[in-house]
Design a protein around this nucleic acid. Structure first.
Length: 462
DNA sequence: TCTGGGGTCCTAGGACCC
DNA sequence: TCTGGGGTCCTAGGACCC
């Protein structure tokens, strides 16, 4: 028996925890560069704003209807996510953290009524964190996912749906009321093809012949059929497995045509990717640079993979990886061309120390590990980019736009809400200074927390 | 007249997830 | 003018091994 717990409009809910005035109002959270909508409060959904909507198409309407738009604040969401997972993890010895706002729990054999247990989870999360969640329960992960979908359909409902608690006729009717595309693992392509075969609902899919579907679609779809029948095929992944590849990429805040700026941006992505590489205890033996050209018609051109470079020996060293990436950029660079985004992929990842060393190359200097450890400690304490290679540059005019970001309430002392009599909280103005590199904010003595003395947005601290 | 059987590794492409 | 940024798994086919 599995439970899937999923936060409702998670990013919006996180913002509301620290800004209760957003409660009851239509609120959306935007992707990086304030490009499109990635989270909507129920009030915003009521205006018909779709998930993923390009924000520039909605900005005017939003202003008229006083819809609040916020840039995404991942430091805040990641911190609340960790707390959410800790609370939910206390409900079962076996937990799979599936994404930033949802997890599976194994609730088999727990000598409790699963439905009541689900209500207890909701209450504990609401009391401890102020976040709304829904709980779905079923005999397989796919059924738990679907049950969660049912629980979310009725925002004023109990927030818990347990397929195991329903009489067979009700269970059947519920599956028949769900579109086949609502089933976890059925994307738009497969949904269209299944509709053509006369399969329209979750019940149709459950009752279809697994072998026939396997021939046409592969083993993945066959497993979904069995899962819908209550035969658990997908195991609970309780240990986060190390990533097989690490990508760091961004669209630029404005197009870039200078080689040095391109290299600086890529260097910054290498730094982020390498930090994640070391955090999971891996080393990389190959690196690819991604450069994005101007858009192609209505859509962003994909990030084309340019020159992959294999390394003689696997490494965790930001400087070494940056050197390779910088050279690839120089090789691929076309003068006069405008670039809209860039990124880096680290590949061929293995646990540190697992790969044999190159017979003809000296062992890596032992101080590399120590140097990287210091780098990571400083940046973990003071913010990513506090200590960095000069190659990353200082002005970073390509940096992404984030015009509506809320403060880092839980991870930055300077961003703690401070309410003074007769004043707005001091933080409200600081949120517009996101272009000021962290070292400036950290260096600021508390007296400079006065918003009237904050540097204006876009000003250079150097 | 008659020409096996069992593998691995790599890549590209297609689907899906949040 | 303006449309994100991560990931996973599966399959098929080709090259190669003994």
């Amino acid at each position: 028996m599995f439970a899937l717990i999923d936060a409702n409009h998670f990013y919006v809910a996180c913002e509301r925890v620290f800004n209760p005035r957003l409660e009851g109002r239509p609120v959306v959270v935007l992707s990086n560069n304030d490009g499109c909508v990635v989270a909507r409060s129920p009030e915003a959904k009521a205006f018909g704003i779709p998930m993923g909507a390009p924000w520039f198409l909605w900005r005017d309407r939003a202003r008229r209807h006083r819809i609040v738009a916020l840039s995404s604040n991942y430091a805040l969401y990641a911190d609340l996510s960790a707390r959410l997972m800790a609370v939910l993890g206390s409900f079962s010895p076996r937990q799979e953290v599936y994404s930033i706002d949802e997890c599976f729990l194994d609730v088999a054999g727990l000598a409790v009524n699963p439905t009541a247990y689900g209500h207890a989870m909701r209450q504990r999360v609401a009391r401890g964190l102020g976040l709304p969640v829904c709980v779905g329960i079923g005999a397989s992960k796919t059924l738990a996912k679907l049950a969660n979908h049912v629980a979310k359909q009725d925002p004023t409902g109990p927030g818990v749906y347990d397929f195991g608690a329903q009489a067979p006729a009700i269970h059947d009717a519920q599956l028949a009321a769900l579109d086949i595309g609502a089933v976890w693992g059925i994307g738009p392509r497969w949904a269209a093809q299944l509709h053509q075969r006369g399969l329209h609902t979750a019940r149709d899919l459950r009752d279809a012949d697994p072998k026939t579907l396997r021939q046409a679609f592969g083993v993945v779809l066959e497993r979904i059929v069995w899962e819908l029948r209550g035969v658990a095929c997908l195991p609970l992944d309780t240990l986060p497995t190390p990533k097989q590849q690490i990508i760091a990429s961004r669209t630029f805040g404005r197009p870039v045509d200078a080689l040095e700026e391109l290299q600086a941006a890529v260097a910054q992505h290498v730094a982020r990717a390498a930090t994640r590489l070391r955090r999971q205890g891996s080393q990389a033996q190959a690196l690819q640079v991604l450069l994005r050209s101007p858009r192609d018609g209505a859509h962003l051109a994909p990030l084309p993979i340019t020159g992959m470079q294999r390394l003689a020996t696997p490494t965790t060293d930001t400087a070494e990886l940056t050197q390779v990436a910088t050279r690839i950029v120089a090789e691929q660079y076309q003068p006069g061309r405008r670039y809209h985004g860039a990124g880096v992929m680290l590949l061929d990842l293995t646990p540190v120390g697992s790969a044999p060393r190159d017979l003809f190359r000296a062992a890596p200097p032992p101080r590399t590990a120590a140097r990287m450890a210091v780098l990571d400690q400083i940046n973990a304490r003071w913010g990513q980019g506090t200590l960095r290679l000069a190659r990353e540059g200082f002005l970073q005019p390509w940096a992404m736009r984030q015009n509506h970001r809320s403060p880092a309430y839980t991870t930055d002392w300077n961003a703690l809400p401070v309410v003074r009599a007769g004043h707005e909280p001091a933080r409200s103005k600081r949120s517009t200074t996101s272009r000021v590199p962290p070292e400036t904010r950290i260096a600021s003595p508390p007296s400079q927390g006065d918003p009237t003395r904050s540097p204006p947005p876009g000003s250079t601290p150097l």
